[in-house]
Design a protein around this nucleic acid. Structure first.
Lengths: 219, 219
DNA sequence: GGATGTCCGTTGCAATTGCAACGTTTTGAA
DNA sequence: TTCAAAACGTTGCAATTGCAACGGACATCC
């Protein structure tokens, strides 16, 4: 177990806890680990989600299947990432998604009731865990909100401008894209070539300079 | 203060608390109320958000302004609704939005640090508040996720189908829309008339029956 | 009854977009 | 260094979409 402490500290949930604190807090969370072989299901669609998961090693895939039966990859998690926290904390009874080991993996499970109720044995790091949990959910919330605002723009150009706008609020008028073109197009929910075309137009019109991943917004 | 207890109980945060419990818990949250006149600012863009707000009466508007200076209404809150919880719990230092009284209003403020740390005076409802808070954030998360999935569909038809799909998972193949056409189009982020056209095509093709707000998905 | 406002479907038109395909450039691993 | 894969820009074409405008149905108010 202890060999995973470094991984745990990389998670937003356990960040900032020392070895001793982790040793103290893990038992009172009802934490347990489990290994899965590639292809094995961690949670079936329709099943009751019981615990928050932390990937200790390997890769975990979350997929949803449409009514037509096609399966669609929704998210992928690597070591140090949390999954299921929203669905578990919201008290959903039937999982709308299937969770599966994309590679052999090991997962730590944390029971939400133990996490949220300060424990009687007075482990004082519990408060920090609760704060971490709330902060995580809140941050994800803001992230989703920001992305929603992008996606609700009608045209490709508006999406690009909205995205550039958020970047400029931090990095100033010049910044580096964290995406390949393909990824950016996917992030904005548009076609890659159409986006490329639009970027070209914007450059011609003198709205932006763009070369590779470097962008400068001119006005 | 007490006259607002019913309003408070309508909020997701304080739901299920009795009068006595509220009386016990409010002081230990550092709760305070304040009145604003129509047009007055509750929080300026760029200012430091300090507390979670609960609208007790009146209406509160949240707006963002683009770099070009145009202001855009992001959200509107009425009595019984919470605002600012994500931004405050995420520990954001500079508010990206402006909050303003759209009508004369009264607001209750709750300090997040007091909310998340179980208080020493041992008020035992605190745990329930934390649970409520976490559940709220988690539910909002799921909601945003669902909406995101809609918005990331490329075509109007796919958006409609995705939306119908989520409705069918609950109500079965026949259900009632909670929107006017205008609202639905806005929700899906598409043009109303284009959506109307698409609905017409889908009806012609025998995919759906739709009349007013009643929808039946045929295959 | 008439005026008014909202909701909704329809349509013409121009602009945008997705798609497929191709060639060039860049990247990364052998 | 060399080679294959990935990333990228470009373009023609067809389909979709946004926009603006119009008219009918319906409800409300005076």
């Amino acid at each position: 177990m202890k060999k995973y402490y470094d991984t745990l500290r990389k998670t937003a949930l356990f960040q900032g806890l020392s070895d001793e604190e982790l040793t103290a807090v893990l038992p009172c969370l009802g934490a347990l680990t489990r290994k899965y072989a590639r292809g094995e299901a961690l949670l079936l669609a329709g099943a009751r989600p019981q615990a928050i998961g932390v990937v200790l090693s390997g890769t975990v895939h979350v997929s949803r299947e449409s009514l037509l039966g096609e399966s669609m990859l929704v998210a992928s998690f690597e070591a140090g990432e949390l999954f299921g926290e929203s669905i578990v904390c919201a008290g959903i009874e039937e999982s709308p998604v299937r969770v599966e080991a994309a590679a052999d993996c090991e997962v730590l499970y944390v029971r939400p009731d133990k996490l949220l109720a300060t424990c009687s044995t007075g482990c004082r790091f519990h408060t920090r865990l609760i704060e971490n949990m709330v902060r995580m959910l809140a941050e994800k919330n803001l992230l989703l909100n920001a992305k929603m605002e992008l996606l609700s723009q009608r045209s490709t150009r508006d999406k690009l401008l909205a995205y550039f706008d958020t970047r400029m609020r931090r990095g100033g008028a010049a910044f580096e894209l964290p995406f390949t073109r393909e990824e950016l197009a996917d992030y904005l929910g548009v076609n890659r070539s159409a986006m490329s075309r639009e970027l070209g137009k914007m450059r011609e019109e003198g709205l932006i300079e763009i070369s590779g991943r470097r962008v400068r917004v001119l006005r």
